[in-house]
Simulated assay, not measured.
Amino acid sequence: MKFVVKKASNGEFRFTLVASNGQVVATSETYKAKASALSTIESIQKHAAGATIDDQSDA
């Protein structure tokens, strides 16, 4: 898996999380600063491995 950071036509940044088969798994919100997008990626890399699942689909 990899994170792909792109700059939009409006000058803001967003990232996608792409699986090894090329499929986009997740897309971020937009960020005014590239550093903010990279900071969020870093946070996900550090903390997502321990994330739990909150299945509210039956609610």
Rank of each mutant, 00 (worst) to 15 (best):
G11W: 06
Q45G: 06
S39V: 04
V18T: 11
T52V: 13
V5K: 04
Y31K: 09
E29T: 12
A33M: 14
A48P: 03
A26V: 03
S20D: 15
T16C: 12
V4K: 09
S9A: 11
K32S: 14
A51I: 09
A37D: 06
R14Y: 14
I44Q: 01
K32L: 14
T40E: 13
K34F: 02
V18P: 00
S9C: 00
S36M: 13
T16M: 12
F13D: 03
V4M: 01
F13W: 00
V18L: 06
H47G: 15
T30H: 12
H47P: 01
V24H: 03
A19K: 15
T27H: 00
S9T: 07
T16F: 11
S36P: 05
N10E: 04
K46Y: 05
L17F: 04
S28L: 00
G50K: 09
Y31H: 03
K46S: 10
K32M: 14
Q56D: 08
L17K: 10
N10V: 02
T40W: 07
N10A: 03
D58V: 05
A33C: 08
K34A: 06
R14V: 00
A49C: 07
I44M: 09
V25S: 06
A35F: 07
T52F: 09
S36Y: 10
A48C: 02
F3H: 06
K34Q: 12
T30W: 11
E42Q: 15
I53R: 10
H47S: 15
F15H: 00
R14K: 11
K34S: 07
G22M: 09
M1W: 04
S9I: 02
Q45E: 12
F3L: 01
S39L: 11
V5Y: 02
A19Q: 13
S36L: 14
I41Q: 01
Q23H: 12
A35K: 13
V5R: 04
T52D: 12
G11Q: 05
H47Q: 15
T30P: 00
V18Y: 01
R14S: 07
K7A: 05
V18H: 05
K46V: 08
S57P: 05
V4A: 08
F13A: 01
S43A: 15
N21T: 08
N21V: 01
S20L: 06
S36R: 12
A8H: 00
S20C: 06
I53W: 05
L17N: 08
V5T: 11
K46T: 12
T40Y: 11
L17I: 07
V25W: 04
H47E: 15
S43K: 15
A48T: 03
A48H: 02
N10P: 01
E29H: 07
H47D: 14
F13T: 00
D58P: 01
K2N: 12
V4N: 03
S28R: 04
N21S: 11
